[in-house]
């Protein structure tokens, strides 16, 4: 029986935590079927089983690789553009990764790839903000008489802030995860570093912008309320990652 149980936000550095979660689920009778890049995890229910999992970040894998893994007892479960998942049922066997240096290298690469994707998603997401900035004031009947050049700078500056923030975040995450042997709770990291600051920068930016461009305070507050609507997807994301 197929059943979707969780939504797990994926960060390569949390792979140890993720494999432990899958192993725990298998011992409860929910065996992993797939886990897509959006974070939707599908399990099928069965009797409790002792399954060992491995999240692998190998790039450009081949059929030869899957065959070799199978020969050494690791069955292929699922793959997407960023990672592969293997499992083994029964007694513990030699792990797929047994060289710390290579493992760290692969995690770094995986993290970089993931961060690039996240940044491009953010860029795409915030690309629609200028449209909101342009059309929302008309919708809210704001007064443009006092508009100056300065507010026009707010969008690119905040945009730049968020992009550089994500780059710094990647460096920080990488360093912290390496120091803690890649075992940090990603949910806590996301709460502390990703969600709140980035959204507050944007919500604050919008509030300042509307206050400066409009003499209508009610309109500004409505604008602030409008921008907070953009935060909901992040709140949803936070709730999902805090499952860890």
């Amino acid at each position: 029986m197929k059943k979707t149980i969780d939504t797990i936000s994926y960060l390569p550095c949390a792979y140890k935590k993720i494999t432990k979660l899958f192993e725990k689920k298998a011992s409860e009778g929910y065996v992993l079927k797939s886990w897509d890049i959006k974070g939707d995890v599908q399990y099928y229910s069965t009797s409790p089983r002792n399954i060992q999992y491995c999240v692998d970040f190998i790039e450009n894998y081949s059929a030869e690789y899957i065959e070799t893994c199978a020969f050494y007892g690791w069955e292929f479960v699922y793959s997407n553009s960023e990672f592969m998942i293997f499992s083994h049922e029964g007694t513990k066997i030699q792990p797929l990764q047994n060289d710390e240096e290579t493992e760290n290298y692969m995690i770094r690469r995986g993290l970089l790839k993931n961060m690039k994707k996240r940044i491009s998603k953010q860029i795409m997401f915030y690309a629609i903000l200028p449209l909101v900035y342009v059309f929302a004031p008309y919708g809210l009947r704001m007064d443009f008489a006092t508009q100056s050049f300065f507010p026009e700078l707010i969008i690119p500056v905040t945009f730049l802030c968020v992009v550089s923030y994500y780059c710094m975040l990647w460096l920080l995450l990488n360093r912290m995860q390496r120091q803690s042997n890649f075992n940090i709770n990603t949910g806590i990291l996301s709460k502390k570093f990703i969600l709140l600051p980035a959204d507050l920068i944007f919500a604050g930016g919008f509030l300042i912008d509307t206050l400066l461009t409009s003499s209508n305070v009610v309109g500004s507050i409505l604008g602030f309320a409008l921008i907070t609507l953009f935060i909901f997807p992040f709140v949803y994301l936070y709730k999902s990652v805090s499952n860890f």
């Binding site: 790039e59 893994c69 792990p95 797929l96 990764q97 060289d99 290579t102």
Partner: peptide, 11 residues
């Protein structure tokens, strides 16, 4: 050498 380590090294 684990299979994952080997193929990662080869790449």
């Amino acid at each position: 050498i684990g299979a994952g380590t080997l193929y990662a090294l080869l790449a």
